[in-house]
Simulated assay, not measured.
Amino acid sequence: MRSDTFNEFDALTRFLGSRTGSARSPQFMPIDLYKIDNSYVLHADLPGMDPGSIDVKVDRGVLTITAQRTAPSEEGVQWLTSERFSGIYRRQISLGDDVDTERITASYDNGVLSLTIPLHEQAKPRQIEVVQGRDEAARPLVSSTAAPA
């Protein structure tokens, strides 16, 4: 059975653990995902993250992105409003068979994690040359044991 990369990635993405979330703990990591040329490109919004806390792994066809934003100290603080999420963010995406997991690259710039996820060479579209005239490959095969006419 052939796997279609990212076909149902939203159904397979989950936030770490069974926490229900709150004003201080997010439930999601917004992403954009698109295909361009021979690669998929994923952008994940992770504003305010320490780049050292961002972890990207591939295991058994599942891409996992984990990052952590530490909450400011609560000691002696009287909050007037608290709208910035803190805690652990995690997103898991099932990859298809056509992805070259050995060549995935990642960068983090201006709060956005960008991944380039290339296709395997054999999964890339290729042009088949069409030749004019009869080609040896197109001739019908004749059995060597056929009786002469």
Rank of each mutant, 00 (worst) to 15 (best):
R2E: 14
T5S: 15
F6A: 05
L12K: 07
L12M: 05
L12W: 10
R14F: 13
L16G: 05
R19L: 07
A23T: 10
R24N: 09
P26C: 03
Q27C: 01
I31A: 03
I31M: 04
D32T: 03
L33E: 04
K35W: 00
S39H: 07
V41G: 00
H43K: 07
H43V: 01
A44W: 02
A44L: 06
A44T: 04
L46M: 07
P47Q: 04
D50H: 06
D50F: 09
P51H: 09
G52L: 09
S53H: 05
S53M: 05
D59L: 09
V62W: 08
L63I: 06
T64W: 01
A67M: 06
R69H: 08
R69W: 03
P72D: 14
E75Y: 12
V77C: 08
Q78C: 03
Q78T: 15
R84V: 14
R84M: 10
F85S: 13
S86E: 12
R90F: 01
R90C: 09
R91W: 03
Q92H: 03
G96V: 08
E102W: 00
R103G: 00
R103P: 00
T105K: 12
S107Q: 13
Y108C: 07
Y108M: 08
N110V: 06
V112T: 15
L113R: 07
L113A: 04
L115T: 02
L115Q: 01
L115C: 07
T116I: 12
P118G: 09
P118L: 08
H120M: 14
Q122W: 15
Q122G: 05
R126Y: 12
Q127F: 14
E129M: 13
D135Q: 13
D135P: 00
E136R: 13
R139M: 10
P140I: 12
V142A: 11
S144F: 05
T145D: 15
A146Y: 10
A147T: 15
A149W: 09
A149F: 12
